[in-house]
Design a protein around this nucleic acid. Structure first.
Length: 668
DNA sequence: GTAGGGTTAG
């Protein structure tokens, strides 16, 4: 006989040995005293209830109950206790114990269970085999999962599905789909059930290719599985991940039955893709339809939509709803509330919500650090980070992205350098492309352009458009033509549809007085048929989002807005404002440029917001692209003239305009 | 009589 998993041969543990190292029997530090008491009570209750401690089925039900209650450690403990009494486990003892090992990610205990099952000859049992595959996958040793799969001579749909899911879990989605195809070929379509279909669909979502998802959708129709609610739910997600939102919506509309997950999925799809209006509309529809009750997931998704749209009023409403539903304490909802307030410009309210959270996970902490960071409040961001290091979870790579971004937005060069090094040396986290992006931005803004370029050259991963984009922006500010050309060339390759880089490079040339190159850029853009990403700004008023495009005249109050803007411009000019035409592509004459600037969407939105709100109210604008330099100085002046605080969130960060200055002190 | 596989979230 040959052991199916090579690693097993090294294990020489007696069968009744504890499955987990002695140390790990003390409950994990994260579990509260309450759950500790519950687990112990539960275990004690089982011991008392087990009338016949020699009966394997009594032990099995104890293990199963503990595993179901999520007390994985206790479930494994019970298994060991059973072995200490020399009770022989049977085929029903293993699945729940293995599930517990998987839940704990404890490969060691899983391998010991595998060994015991093997010695008892129970490993080819369908229930044991599927649990083994699942355990190895969740412990991220997918090769051993595959060996356990191959060692199962007669497979059923659950064994196949476990293997498919195992590949998806371990980022091998194509292998998962290949396995599904083998399943289909070997066992025939009649064996495919809806769980298998859903699993394979989740692989399609990971692959995120339209053709793959469409092909699989076709197969599901043939199998008659497409009307299953679960299948529809996953299908929506898969289409959305492929970027085909209209088909995702069609799937939703055509579903014969919708459950909570269906609504949550379609709302999340819209919210994640920036279609916040649609997300909020569907949420309203969900409430009206009455068929499905919203839960923590729904609120989390809707809050994401609010955050994206900067819809503070709506966000507050959802927050109230969360409180009423007693869902504020849910860690996902709590984190989404923090994120929503930060992205709606209310970082103090975010902090209050954050302080109220009883349960904070790594994402909650990272969201708060990032929140302070995007408002340019580096000091507070680092204070939260300090607190996290003292009393919170161990920072991960996402936390460090937030920390470095906060340093870069606040211009904290020394701190940024320190944490970039400490992240690697003290926390053993290798820098990913996002970390490099932050560092290039930080160095670039500080004027250390060559150092930023050296860092890019020394990167352990391929630099992406964020990294080169940060360098190009820095070159614009610090007028470095040579490196601007190098980074722009890379950007044209990496992100060919984005015309922003052409404009930036053209601006660098214009600043250097190289008009011939400016003209070349204009021609190049025309040749390559570049279409400018339409810039738009939005304002929330009484829960409604008003959107403005450049020179937009579609708004009901457009005449009033333009009149007001004209009056403002006169006052601005009296105060010494000179239009800064550098950000406009140099292909129109100066006068035309001025007119174009005057109707930039952010100016329209600011004018509309001032007109529509009471004196003294803070005005808040969202801009999808970066605020141009002219709008930046214009809004600074407007804020002073009308004595208002104006908050602008652009694609990069927040700008708080107050008393003629802005919180970001590095705009060109 | 009992045990195993899936979809939504920050």
């Amino acid at each position: 006989m040959k052991l199916s998993c090579s690693k097993l041969t090294t294990i020489i543990t007696p069968l009744f040995h504890p499955l987990l190292p002695a140390k790990s029997f003390s409950f994990s530090s994260s579990s509260s005293s309450v759950s500790r008491a519950n687990s112990k009570t539960l275990l004690l209750a089982h011991f008392n209830r087990i009338v016949d401690k020699n009966s394997v089925s009594s032990w099995n039900s104890a293990i199963a109950d503990l595993a179901r209650a999520g007390d994985s450690r206790e479930a494994l403990h019970a298994f060991s206790s059973m072995r200490k009494l020399y009770v022989k486990p049977d085929r029903s003892s293993f699945p729940c114990a293995l599930k517990s090992s998987a839940a704990l990610g404890s490969l060691c205990s899983g391998q010991q269970l595998h060994l015991q099952a093997f010695l008892l000859g129970l490993h080819p049992d369908l229930f044991v085999a599927s649990a083994l595959i699942d355990m190895y996958s969740k412990c991220h040793v997918v090769d051993d999962a595959r060996k356990a799969f191959d060692d199962t001579p007669v497979k059923n749909v659950v064994v196949w599905t476990s293997m498919i899911v195992g590949y998806v879990w371990n980022e091998a989605a194509r292998e998962a789909l290949h396995t599904f195809k083998c399943f289909f070929a070997e066992e025939g379509g009649s064996e495919v059930d809806y769980v298998a279909a859903v699993s394979a669909l989740s692989a399609c979502a990971r692959i995120a290719e339209r053709k793959v998802t469409k092909g699989f959708h076709g197969a599901l129709v043939k199998l008659g599985l497409e009307m299953e609610t679960g299948v529809g739910n996953t299908l929506m997600d898969a289409y959305a991940k492929c970027g085909v939102l209209d088909i995702a919506r069609k799937v939703f509309d055509e579903m014969s039955q919708r459950d909570n997950v269906s609504w949550n999925t379609v709302i999340a799809v819209y919210a994640q893709n920036g279609l916040s209006t649609e997300a909020l509309e569907l949420y309203t529809l969900m409430l009206r339809s009455g068929g499905a009750r919203y839960n923590a997931v729904t609120l989390s998704a809707v809050l994401l939509g609010c955050a994206h749209a900067g819809a503070l009023q709506m966000g507050k409403c959802i927050h109230n709803q969360a409180i009423r539903m007693c869902l504020e304490e849910d860690v996902y909802v709590g984190t989404s509330i923090v994120d929503m307030y930060c992205k709606c410009g209310r970082v103090e309210m975010a902090r209050k919500a954050f302080n109220r959270m009883k349960d904070k996970n790594i994402k909650s902490w990272s969201a708060m650090v990032a929140g302070y960071g995007m408002h340019g409040r580096g000091k507070e961001a680092l204070e939260v980070f300090d607190e996290m290091r003292k009393s919170g979870p161990k920072p991960n790579h996402i936390t460090f992205v937030s920390v470095l971004a906060a340093c870069s937005h606040a211009g904290l060069l020394g701190k940024g350098r320190h944490w970039f090094t400490a992240m690697q040396e003290e926390y053993g986290i290798k820098p990913e492309v996002e970390h490099y992006g932050c560092m290039v931005d930080l160095l670039g803004r500080a004027g250390c352009i060559e150092e930023a370029y050296d860092l890019i050259k020394a990167m352990r991963v391929k630099p992406d458009f964020m990294v080169w984009g940060a360098l190009l922006s820095a070159c614009r500010v610090h007028k470095n033509v040579k490196l601007a050309e190098i980074s722009a060339k890379k950007l044209f390759e990496l992100d060919p549809k984005n015309c922003g880089y052409y404009v930036l490079l053209s601006n660098v040339y214009a600043d250097a007085g190289r008009w011939r190159d400016v003209e070349k850029m204009r021609v190049l853009m025309k040749q390559r048929k570049m279409i400018k990403t339409p810039g738009y700004s939005s304002v929330e008023l009484k829960g409604r989002i008003h959107v403005f495009l450049i020179g937009d005249r579609r708004h009901l109050k457009h005449e009033e807005i333009y009149d007001y803007l004209d009056k403002l411009t006169v006052r601005m000019q009296e105060a010494g404002y000179v239009p800064d035409t550098r950000s406009v592509l140099h292909d129109v004459d100066e006068e035309e440029k001025e007119t174009a600037l005057r109707v930039h969407s952010e100016k329209l939105a600011v004018a509309f917001a001032i007109l529509s709100t009471a004196p003294g109210t803070t005005v808040q604008i969202i801009k999808n692209l970066r605020v141009c330099s002219d709008c930046h100085s214009a809004i600074k002046l407007i804020a002073k003239l009308v004595d208002r605080e104006i908050v602008v969130r652009d694609s990069h960060r927040f700008h708080h305009f107050r008393n003629g200055s802005c919180s970001c002190n590095d705009y060109w």
